[in-house]
């Protein structure tokens, strides 16, 4: 029978769709990792969370002039719906336990960007401070560090694009190395 798919040569690109499907149907073949990673990097929802002046730059980066929504990054007010924690600001020892708890409440896969000098190393509070945590990587694992005090929104967007590159390299399926 001429309608048996086994005997029908595959249609060339741009030709008529397979029988039984409408003219808008297209078939995409690719590996699943690529597709899943692309979906994840294009919808990086970040936790609405800021502890110091870096938070002002974070708000600015999310607002209309810099518009992080272009990259699929929008804020979520709950860790349950967030993929990314942007640690924007100084973390004190009193705050550290709350940061850890928020991180633990986020679903996998989850990522952390340390934004600004305070979150990277303690920044201006590195020496002679009894209350500031000297880098948020003492509490939670960090994927991307953004220098600056505070970093400009361009730097933050650059950090998010770096994180997108990291996500695209992720292996979700197949044999584990």
């Amino acid at each position: 029978m001429s309608s048996d798919p086994a005997h029908t040569p595959p249609p060339a690109h741009g030709s008529a769709p397979p029988p039984g499907l409408g003219p808008e149907a297209q078939v995409m073949v690719g590996n699943a990792d690529l597709f899943v990673n692309w979906a994840r990097k294009s919808s990086l929802w970040y936790l609405l969370f800021a502890t110091a002046c870096c938070g002002i730059e974070l708000m600015q980066a999310g607002a209309s002039r810099y518009d992080m929504d272009r990259f699929g990054a929008v804020f979520r007010a709950t860790p349950r719906q967030a993929d990314l924690m942007l640690v924007a600001g100084t973390i004190t020892h009193k705050m550290a336990e709350r940061v850890k708890r928020l991180y633990d409440q986020m679903p996998e896969p989850k990522y952390v960007i340390a934004m600004g000098s305070c979150a990277n190393t303690g920044g201006p509070f590195y020496k002679d401070s009894y209350c500031v945590v000297k880098g948020v990587d003492l509490i939670i694992p960090v994927d991307v560090y953004i220098p600056g005090c505070p970093p400009r929104p361009e730097a933050l967007i650059d950090g998010i694009m770096k994180l997108q590159k990291i996500i695209m390299k992720r292996k979700n399926y197949g044999a584990k190395a």
């Binding site: 020892h93 009894y130 509490i139």
Partner: peptide, 13 residues
């Protein structure tokens, strides 16, 4: 005369 602690709740001060 305050002496800094070494750590607080396991985090280095």
């Amino acid at each position: 005369d305050y002496k800094y602690p070494d750590s607080y709740h396991g985090i280095k001060v």
